[in-house]
Structure formats: structure tokens, C-alpha cells
Design a protein around this nucleic acid. Structure first.
Lengths: 158, 158
DNA sequence: TATTGTTATACTCTATAACTATA
DNA sequence: TATAGTTATAGAGTATAACAATA
């Protein structure tokens, strides 16, 4: 039985998560780029949608992005008319980032893309299994992904 | 509630798998590099341990590595004395890769590292939940990871 | 002096494609 | 002509650190 991934690797959850993560990243990238944006852009739009007034530092911290990297991402988003940067009058070092109407429209569209992406990726699983998986992944994320304190909402979603 | 990953992202399994995959990759890299090797090297050793005589092409296909990339990996492994390349007398274009005694020793050591890695990563889960997760991940891998036809062994492992 | 955002640099990974030797 | 392996190159992505403006 040649040309198969070795059994020893298939029985390692960490290996499987690694490989599935790479595939998920790849498919996300393709799905969002069809709409002309990057998964990072979508994540930023979701972050802005949750809070009221977000500074670049707050966005970077929430998503665990490097601040230098975020500058370029926001440049692209501003270029595309999705967000605007405004100096905070109370502390002129800060930039407050706000979503434009076009950005809000894009967010709605991208939520549908994300939903489709999840559905396609989880296609091999039953509805019940998807809920199980979500619960398990969330428990792992709380431990391993920065800023993942769960409020309970994410658990019952789907 | 600022500085948190947005709820919309946390409720997406694809997002969680992406982030957990990145973390798993990172931790794997660190764990194996303490022993002076790369996760890819370990995967190659496992592949060789399953088959009898492996050509470079067969290894690349099994693990879905690019053949050009594999050349460098095997150079490093040969340098470290873990494997040897021998021309196949029946087809002198082919290189047959064999594990040295040192490579077999390293494989044993790395299996312990992999086991520890899995245990640590799954620490937030009960034994029963770990089995559930393994089953779900495997079902997804069959669909999304190349060459993952499951024989049943990986399912009951752990 | 410390912090926010910006810019520049360098480094790792990966993907591609030319090249050789054998078939 | 096609295939196995090799080599070289370029590109994306990421990480690091210096820098300017403000506090």
C-alpha cells in the first residue's frame, strides 16, 4: 500500500490539524480573493463590526496581528474604500478606524462567503458532528489561540 | 469587551481550524527543532518506516511534497546521517532512500516527541473527547488531505 | 522616556521552471 | 520523447527593527 500518508501521522491529531489548517487557509484565500479581498480584511471588518471605535492597536491586539503588518492591510482596505482612518483628537498618535458604507456591504457579502466555506469544508460531517467539532475546536482555541475567551455565543452557533 | 477575537470568527470552524493549524505547526516546529530536525524530516522517517524501498518520487507523492523541496530535505537528512540515497540499479534515474541505524533511533525518539505534542495540545480535552475529535478530523482529512484513505487503524489509535 | 503608527529590511517558505541523466 | 531527480530563481508571507510624531 504505497503512496499513502503513513498511519503514524494520520493517528496524530496535531498532524491532522496542521494539514487541515493549511487546506482551510488555502480555500479561504481562494474564496475571499474571488471578491477581491483577503481573509485578513474580512477578519478586520468583523472586528470593527463588534466594537464602536477601534484604534489600530486594538485591532492588532484582538486579531493577534503584527502592527506593522496591519498598516499595509489597512492601506489596502482604505484604497478599496472599505474603511477610513481618522486621527483621534484626544490622542493624536492614535488612528481610529471606521467602516464605510461600502465596507459594511462587503461585510454582509463576506459573511455569506464564510458560511458557504464552513458548509463546504464540513460537508463530510453530519449536523450533529459539526456541533461536536465546533465545541471541541473552541475548547482547544481557548487554550491555544490568543484572546479567545468564550462568552458562550460561539458555542451554540450554527 | 474589547481586544477579543470577534464572535463571528470564533463561531466559524474553518477559522478555528486555520488558527489551531498555525499554532500546531508552530509548536511542532519548536518541539522537533529541539532535537535538531524539522517536522518534515520526521514525516519522511515515518514514510520510510512503513514501506520497504522508497524512491524520492514515492515519498513526495505520499506526503504531497514538491519534488524539488524534497531534494533539500533529504540533503539535510543525509548530512545528519539519518538516511542514505542509493541509485536503483534497475532504473538508474531513481534514488532509493533508506533509513540508517541513526535514523531509526531518531524515529523512535521523535515518536515520543510527537506523542507528547499530541498530549499537550489536547490537554483541554477529556480522553473521550480526544477520541471524538480524532474521528472527526480523520473524516475531514479523508476529504481534504491528499492520500488519506483510512484503513481503520488510525481511527482506533490513542 | 514611552507609545502609536509607519517604513524599511531581511529572512523563511514555497512555487516555478530550466537543466541533467537516464529510459 | 518522457521521466527522476537536481538546481536556480523569483515571489509571497512574515518577522524584526529603526524611525517620526505625540504623549
Amino acid at each position: 500500500m504505497k503512496n499513502r500518508v503513513p498511519e503514524a501521522l494520520l493517528s496524530s491529531p496535531v498532524f491532522l490539524i496542521k494539514r487541515l489548517g493549511m487546506k482551510a487557509k488555502e480555500e479561504s484565500h481562494d474564496a475571499y480573493s474571488d471578491a477581491g479581498i483577503h481573509p485578513y480584511h474580512y477578519a478586520i471588518l468583523e472586528t470593527l463590526a463588534e466594537g464602536e471605535r477601534e484604534t489600530q492597536g486594538a485591532i492588532a491586539d484582538a486579531l493577534d496581528y503584527d502592527r506593522g503588518q496591519l498598516v499595509g492591510l489597512l492601506d489596502e482596505m482604505e484604497e478599496a474604500g472599505l474603511v477610513e482612518r481618522r486621527r483621534d483628537p484626544e490622542d493624536r498618535r492614535r488612528q481610529v478606524v471606521v467602516t464605510t458604507p461600502a465596507g459594511k456591504k462587503m461585510l454582509i457579502k463576506m459573511r455569506a462567503v464564510a458560511k458557504q466555506l464552513d458548509d463546504d469544508f464540513l460537508a463530510p460531517l453530519t449536523l450533529d458532528q459539526r456541533k461536536q467539532l465546533q465545541k471541541l475546536l473552541l475548547a482547544l482555541a481557548v487554550e491555544h489561540v490568543p484572546n479567545c475567551q468564550v462568552t458562550g455565543l460561539a458555542l451554540v452557533a450554527e
